[in-house]
């Protein structure tokens, strides 16, 4: 690791100020950033640790509205009793990230700001129609994620929370790379309401050339009938899907259907 200056922020305002130092980067759980710095893929001059800011921590559920602070760890999300009731699919997703030691440190804000193309949370945020709250504005998840490791976040902008309306039904299914355990394909299915009508959203991670995306053909099929059998009729194109040594685009396209089917079955219980 190259030399770096560590700063611990006591508040979001403090973090914004510290971020102006040199080529500073935000540090939350550090489960991606520290390994990237060790291999010198990342070499910020300064680190601004936001993981101990109390205002960024915790899960709140009020009626159907769920708000999760950006510095809430995967472990905290997966074990929060209120969330397990309001949106068990998201708690379960959090329990499937990395391993127990990683979940004790990694945070939801860090994961979505990093936008790894195989990360789990982006799929949940998009499928839940979540809003990403920053110190400057609120951004719809559909617009937040831009491409590989890219979001619409600007300089000095810090994710402070995510918020969404708990859907009636939801589930996440992931087909893991057997070695890295990252998603080769992960599908989050949510059946909620939009403008008083049923709204089915299906978001896919691990498969897209540009990161997370919505599987619109499956959404249309599931809007008619929220049943695993309905997925069979929906064609998923391999265009824009990743091909690598683990899986071809065609294989991933097929897996999207398979994972969506399993997710709907799980959501229907």
């Amino acid at each position: 690791m190259y030399s770096v200056n560590y700063h611990r922020a006591n508040s979001v305002a403090d973090a914004v100020k510290l971020l102006k130092t040199g080529d500073a980067k935000l540090l939350s759980g550090g489960m991606t950033l520290i390994p990237a710095m060790k291999t010198r893929l990342a070499a910020p001059s300064d680190l601004v640790d936001v993981s101990r800011i109390a205002a960024l921590k915790g899960v709140k559920v009020s009626g159907k509205t769920v708000t999760i602070g950006a510095a809430t760890t995967h472990y905290e999300v997966s074990t929060d009793a209120k969330l397990q009731k309001a949106c068990p699919a998201l708690a379960e997703l959090a329990s499937m990230i990395g391993d127990p030691a990683v979940r004790h440190r990694g945070t939801i804000g860090g994961s979505i700001a990093n936008n790894d193309p195989a990360a789990d949370y982006p799929a949940a945020m998009v499928a839940l129609g979540a809003t990403i709250v920053t110190n400057k504005r609120e951004i719809a998840a559909d617009k937040f994620f831009k491409g590989l490791f890219e979001t619409v976040l600007k300089e000095g902008e810090i994710v402070t929370a995510v918020t969404f309306t708990a859907p009636a039904k939801a589930a996440y299914q992931k087909f893991r790379n057997p070695a890295s355990r990252y998603a080769i394909v992960g599908v989050f299915v949510a059946k909620g309401k939009a403008n008083g009508k049923d709204d089915v959203r299906v978001a896919v991670t691990g498969a897209g050339d540009d990161g997370v995306f919505r599987a619109k053909t499956i959404e249309v099929a599931l809007a008619k009938s929220f049943d695993p059998a309905a997925v069979a009729g929906a064609k998923v194109s391999a265009d824009g899907l990743m091909t690598d040594i683990h899986a071809s685009a065609d294989y991933r396209a097929n897996l999207i259907g398979v994972m969506a089917k399993r997710a709907v079955a799980a959501a229907n219980g």
Binding site: Y6, L27, G30, I34, P35, D49, D99, A101, H104, R105
Partner: peptide, 21 residues
Amino acid sequence: GACVVHVDGKAMKSCSMLAAQ
């Protein structure tokens, strides 16, 4: 996981954390 220690009662990987943290 050969580097796992407990930090404030929770298992964590000490090779991926700074002492300053």
